[in-house]
Simulated scan of single mutants.
Amino acid sequence: MTPDWYAWHDDYDQPGSALSRRLTELRLRIGEALDQAPPGTLRVVSLCAGQGRDLIPVLAAHPRRDDVIACLVELGPRNAEVARAAAAAAGLSAVQVVVGDAALTDHYAGLVPANLVLVCGIFGNIVDADIRATVRHCAALCATGGTVFWTRNRREPDLVPTICDWFAEEGFTPVAVSSPADGVGVGVHRFTGQPRPLPAGVTMFEFVGHDRITRP
């Protein structure tokens, strides 16, 4: 049965839950990246953005908020409407919320390479080959010196070390990677290479859901 991704967000409101702790960590790291970003316009893209809870509250309170042009892509209309309403309430007129399949590269044409790229809530819901492909596409989504944020559970078999290796192969250096003891699986990598052109009409991954993925 397909999960109710709207109701799934309720766990963010449960103090001490894994999602709540993950959200706290992500907001901290996003704020740090904005603090360190170069002057001028900042581009931000968020894949499978959900309700935008990781990004929008940080932008709303950050001194660089008016420098940011952001695009959040979310397949669920109800979640997208929550994100759109939150951006409007915060006066973030340059935050666009698109209802669509975040795996399609066409959604990001003209917006990348971006300074911040959020790939959160994805790597635990796609097969390993698609994780590798998505990491490869991050080298087209992310600007030189830009930051990618991603999440992945630390349950065994723990794929996080391998994901870090894949990012290294694509020209990324680690900024922060949560330990297995944290249980929240947040990764932050900075791109030191030169961005590749983003191919048109490509599906980067298939979102299948963690319950349908068979792992050894």
Rank of each mutant, 00 (worst) to 15 (best):
P199N: 10
L47E: 00
I163Q: 11
D106Q: 11
G52C: 10
E170I: 05
G201N: 09
T162S: 15
G31H: 11
R154N: 04
A83G: 04
L42G: 03
R43M: 09
H210Y: 09
V202A: 06
H62N: 07
T41Q: 14
E206W: 10
S20P: 08
G124R: 05
Q36S: 08
G40K: 08
A114P: 10
L42H: 07
L111M: 14
M1P: 08
L59W: 13
L141G: 06
V68P: 09
R84Y: 06
P15S: 04
E25G: 11
V117H: 01
H9P: 08
T147I: 06
V186T: 04
T24Q: 15
L59N: 01
R43Q: 12
L34C: 02
V184R: 15
A168K: 10
P199E: 13
V184T: 07
V119D: 08
T24I: 06
S93C: 13
T24W: 14
L26T: 05
V117N: 10
D211Q: 15
P15W: 13
G193S: 05
T151K: 00
N125L: 03
S46C: 03
P180D: 09
L104K: 11
R29D: 02
R64K: 15
P113M: 01
G193D: 06
A89E: 12
F205V: 01
E32Q: 04
R212W: 02
A129Y: 04
P195C: 06
P157F: 08
G40S: 04
D67K: 11
P38E: 13
D182H: 01
H107P: 15
C138F: 14
G76P: 07
V98S: 02
L28R: 14
A200G: 10
G100I: 09
I131H: 03
R22E: 11
R65Q: 04
D106S: 07
L19C: 15
A49K: 15
L75C: 05
S93F: 15
R132Y: 13
H210W: 15
P39N: 03
G110L: 06
A61M: 11
R43E: 13
I163R: 02
L111C: 02
A89D: 08
H9G: 06
G145K: 00
S179M: 08
T192K: 10
S46R: 12
V202N: 00
R155A: 01
V202R: 03
T192Q: 11
G124I: 09
R22C: 05
C138S: 02
V119I: 09
R136D: 10
F205G: 00
